[in-house]
Nucleic acid binder design. Structure first.
Lengths: 239, 239
DNA sequence: AAGTGGTCTAGACCACAGT
DNA sequence: CTGTGGTCTAGACCACTTG
């Protein structure tokens, strides 16, 4: 499948952790044993272990071994790029998406600043609401550089926009910056969401960058207060 | 200082990025050049680069090189363990801390569940408010296992609790799980904070684990809506 | 074709935990 | 002392970008 040895070792170990072959609080085979099990070098085995540790599945302890962490019921979004649709679907909620606007436009000053573009360039504007259990909970406002995304359709907006970008267009997203604040509701929120009289709204601003470090998307995701939830898993900073 | 070669290379490169010796959008020396510059092996130089990439300072691109990222004015809290005091101090705000309660108690059922302890064990309870620019903005409720933290004083609570734990007690914090939600205000919030009539509050639940993977602290940090801000920097999941 | 980063190896020495 | 993970090396081959 992959030509990456360390990746396939990682995936094999991960599967065995998830199906309880290796149980929480127990130890993985030692690095020496892993080199024999997978017929590889120690550094390669270590690379797989490093990945497991980074993603929060194990904890390496010097002199002892690699301990499997209790990966709770709560699956933390290690990738900050997981769509909200997926998050809610994972907990078994029915999610429907409604596209309110899809247009190619000249961005206003604020969006120009967020996307770091000159006034000449055009930008896709995509406005969507997410309905969960019959209530319109989330308002997503996406802005994508036309330069990077030549075409965009309503059908794509109704499904996964990332699947389209990465699958069809072959764009490689490399990292994203998120900023979470709480703001007063705007006219648009009131019109498009079921706010139940709430006066504030959680705003998640998302800046998405490609592998060449250029920004190509700015998203503002606005959530009703009582339905918002964000989980973050932070390993100790590697100083 | 350190016996770690890759760490000192990392620190040297980081310093040169921060003082603009290596400028945003420009390229770092190639891995081959770095091995000569620092008289080291390529894998060791790569380790330093890997650290820089992980912490969001550079972006490695195959076939091209390591590009320095524009590290914005916004320094993202790569470590999820940075205290709020530090965050606000960094932007030049005066922060004062007031300790309202410090006691050793039998935790109620909810806290028992969060800390995963039996009903016999005792827990430190520390209630603090943070005052910024003359307003009481944040309510911090800390619960620490007495087993891990035998003594705790009011003075520690008024300063950095982490400095005490890591410095004085030698506890090694390894990772933390954060959960952000918005809840309705409680009686305690109204009494201890300047809420200005707000009905909701941002709640950050923080579960802190030691290197041996045992949990030892649960913190609930309650923020006034209009003063809350959380920044997250997510690299693409390494799958 | 030359230069770049990505992977892999086999071996070495060190620091730490448990006995 | 033995076994564990942490660091480091020197060299190899591959995949990708650029001229």
């Amino acid at each position: 499948m992959q030509n990456n040895k360390f990746l396939s070792i990682y995936q094999d170990l991960l599967e065995k952790i998830q199906n309880n072959t290796y149980r929480p609080k127990s130890k993985l085979p030692s690095e020496h044993e892993l080199t024999e099990l997978y017929d590889t070098s120690r550094e390669t085995a270590r690379k797989a272990l490093h990945l497991l540790a980074q993603n929060g599945y194990i904890q390496k302890v010097r002199g002892k071994g690699s301990i499997v962490l209790p990966l709770d019921k709560l699956n933390f979004p290690v990738s900050g790029l997981v769509s909200f649709k997926e998050v809610f679907q994972k907990v078994g909620k029915k999610v429907t998406t409604q596209v309110h606007e899809l247009s190619l436009c000249q961005p206003d000053e604020e969006i120009q600043h967020h996307l770091n573009v000159k006034s000449g360039e055009k930008v896709w504007k995509l406005i969507r609401t997410r309905e969960i259990d019959g209530e319109r909970i989330i308002l997503d406002k996406d802005y994508l550089l036309q330069e990077k995304v030549p075409t965009l359709t309503k059908e794509v907006g109704e499904n996964s926009i990332y699947e389209y970008l990465e699958g069809e267009l072959g764009l490689s997203i490399s990292f994203a910056k998120k900023e979470i604040t709480v703001e007063e509701v705007e006219q648009e929120d009131v019109e498009l969401l079921d706010l139940e009289g709430q006066t504030h709204i959680v705003v998640v601003k998302n800046y998405v960058y490609l592998e060449d470090t250029s920004i190509f998307q700015y998203t503002e995701s606005r959530h009703r207060l009582d339905k918002f939830r964000f989980v973050d898993f932070a390993r100790r900073a590697h100083l």
